[in-house]
Design a protein around this nucleic acid. Structure first.
Lengths: 233, 233
DNA sequence: TCGTAGTTACGTACAGCGTACGTAGTGCGC
DNA sequence: GCGCACTACGTACGCTGTACGTAACTACGA
């Protein structure tokens, strides 16, 4: 009957369990894992409070004892995945180390394709995110610059990787979910584009389509983009 | 009674109106404007099919005659906003022009804060997006490289701007929607972070907080990031 | 030791969502 | 002028997040 407590904005600032009352049946790790399991298997949209609660084996509303809002559930999931980052002994070559960080992040996102959609700077202070940040800073020890600059570097690299892999995955997903063949889709798009471009209003686009040859080397593009970001520092 | 037609995946490949039947009461532009109006005034989450239909003054399901899926409504909105890009005569200095493009895109996103959330490479072939692309390519005429490289440059710059402004806006929105003061929020976050960092597990993060001084110059950071992206080419 | 306060657990309920489907009305092309 | 393709739109379904009330449980202050 008594009013429910107003919760802190950040879930990490809440104690995981209180002293009074029945023992909590699940840990945050349990809940995060349940969410991750569902997202991996059925996609992010399948991660509903009902679904996660069912996966845990409890009633829907019981979940709200652990996670005040769905957004916090997402935050738990991102943190859990952040824990999958492998943290190695820095090599002394910060560029090489940051390239490795980028590739690892990309691999993480390919393994958990829902991750780019949840990436947000707001989630930047979860326990595992802090560990990851500290690791990046450690790799950047040889880098000559302020911490402010180092943070800018990390943010740019992360942002670029997230955007790139997000696009990569969205495109792949789009192709996979087509109710018709990829060839037909490409034909429709190509016809539309061709029609637009043929109008003569876009001479450079027209030239670009003529120049275009063969499938895009996604790996190569990614590698180049990483190097370009790092090249700016 | 007869089965409804299977629609093409891309809305731009559909003719806007057909010859038969009653005159269509609204144009795509009308619909896009209605969506934009709602999004600007009440946020992206308020843009529901029901809401947009009401704004137009028609029944909910009538909207589906124009827009087969909500995703397509979003695409119309993005295209409408893309039309707000000012297209100027290139200066001959591609770097300067691309810096201008970046600033303009940022301004666009500040004016329509829901835009970053809808940005997707999948929407990249709408009429106004094509115009914008052609304009960027025109600015890049003095750039020595293939169209493939030019596309990579545009994609990186756009991605970086979208990510950056998205973060900027999300942070601002978070602060605005707090049920308590920003100071209290910062205090809670600071206390949590301080506690974590004080544990000694994150020496570099601890050092960074000591170094940290004063509020961040968002303009300056943005400008630096743009120049760094362009510097990679 | 015992009340009681703070928790956990969870069913019910509500408002909102996207959209499938059926039906009625309208006007162009044959 | 017939018929078909299109517009218009009400109803309905299954889903969502979550507010709220209630019952069971346990650690702490008296």
């Amino acid at each position: 009957m008594a009013g429910r407590a107003v919760v802190p904005e950040v879930i990490w600032a809440r104690p995981e369990r209180a002293g009074r009352g029945p023992k909590a049946a699940y840990s945050r790790a349990d809940i995060a894992e349940a969410g991750v399991r569902i997202a991996d298997a059925q996609g992010l949209d399948a991660v509903s409070m009902r679904h996660v609660a069912a996966e845990l084996g409890c009633g829907t509303m019981s979940l709200y004892n652990y996670v005040p809002r769905k957004e916090d559930l997402h935050e738990l999931m991102v943190d859990a995945i952040s824990g999958e980052h492998e943290l190695w002994e820095p090599s002394g070559d910060w560029r090489a180390d940051m390239v490795r960080v980028a590739h690892q992040t990309r691999a993480l996102m390919v393994r958990h394709p829902w991750l780019p959609r949840l990436m947000s700077p707001v989630y930047g202070f979860s326990p595992n995110a802090l560990r990851y940040l500290e690791h990046c800073l450690t790799c950047l020890d040889p880098f000559d610059g302020t911490y402010g600059t180092k943070f800018e570097l990390i943010a740019m690299l992360n942002g670029m990787v997230t955007t790139y892999v997000g696009n990569e995955l969205a495109t792949a997903e789009r192709v996979r979910s087509l109710p018709w063949s990829e060839e037909r889709e490409n034909a429709v798009r190509g016809a539309y584009l061709g029609g637009q471009v043929a109008g003569g209003g876009y001479p450079r686009l027209a030239a670009a389509f003529v120049e275009d040859s063969g499938p895009i080397d996604l790996e190569g593009v990614f590698e180049r983009m990483v190097l370009r970001v790092l090249g700016g520092f």
